[in-house]
């Protein structure tokens, strides 16, 4: 199979980037998209050119490293898969393929297709944790959790933090990521003590990072390799409103009657 690739090349964060076209030939339809990229890079290295920089790690769809927008779709064609799971048979022989980095003000570009997604780490640091006691290991079944609740929390916990939701969102919002991280802890009794501070802290950090706002297009849900539901965004909105408006800030202390 033969393809014409139009890849975004940018030397450094401050350099001016543009699309560069490459022709790759003799590609097996059963090779993965990243294997095709590896072959291209080997050719570039052989010619003494700078290979295309892109993120990848596990190459089995669980690490959330790969981050490309292929032909206008985050992670490329198909549902519920990351770029490493895309096979070249998804394209027709002779296709022109546009490869762009995830575009977001909060994901500064490092080089070519590699972006800095540490904004997500800072959102996690702002509340994506639970308090555990450091004594002897507790009896695992001492805290009963209904099966449906555990499954619901697991649906949110599937998030691999790849950032495809941000890349696919017409507004560059990180609502799906943040809401999934808030929900997978907030739905469980272990996450209850920090429920409100978690929502407020993580939402605040999300806004600080420069992500956009949700306009309910549901593009994130469609692009998510783990199929995370926008119902978690709805849940986060309600939790945020409750935490900021209804919950008392301070109810301790003495009071004067005059």
């Amino acid at each position: 199979m033969k393809y014409t690739l139009h890849i975004w090349r940018q030397e450094s964060p401050s350099a001016k980037g543009d699309f560069v076209s490459y022709i790759v030939d003799d590609i097996s339809p059963d090779s993965s998209f990243l294997e095709m990229m590896d072959l291209l890079n080997e050719q570039l290295i052989a010619k003494g050119e700078d290979p295309v920089t892109f993120d990848s790690d596990c190459r089995e769809g669980i690490c959330g490293s790969c981050s490309m927008v292929i032909d206008g779709r985050a992670h490329g064609p198909g549902h519920g898969c990351t770029t490493c799971e895309v096979r070249m048979r998804s394209f027709r022989d002779g296709d022109h393929i546009y490869i762009e980095p995830f575009r977001s003000a909060a994901f500064p570009l490092i080089k070519d297709l590699m972006v800095d997604r540490s904004a997500f780490d800072r959102i996690i640091e702002s509340g994506g944790y639970v308090t555990v006691h450091s004594g002897p290991k507790p009896e695992p079944n001492s805290l009963p959790i209904p099966h449906a609740v555990a499954e619901h929390a697991m649906d949110a916990a599937e998030c691999i933090g790849c950032g495809a939701c941000v890349a696919a969102c017409p507004n560059g919002a990180a609502m799906l990521f943040t809401s999934a991280k808030i929900s997978h802890l907030g739905l469980l009794p272990q996450g209850e003590p920090e429920h409100d501070t978690r929502v407020v802290g993580m939402v605040h950090q999300m806004e600080q990072e420069g992500f956009g706002a949700c306009t309910n297009h549901a593009e994130c849900q469609d692009a998510c390799p783990k199929g995370i539901s926008i119902s978690f965004i709805s849940r986060m909105n309600r939790a945020f409103a409750k935490a900021t408006l209804r919950e008392p800030d301070q109810r301790r202390g003495t009071m004067s009657n005059q």
Partner: peptide, 14 residues
Amino acid sequence: ARPIRYRRKRRFAT
């Protein structure tokens, strides 16, 4: 939130 736009922009769910 998105200063640089995509060259190829496609919508799937909206």
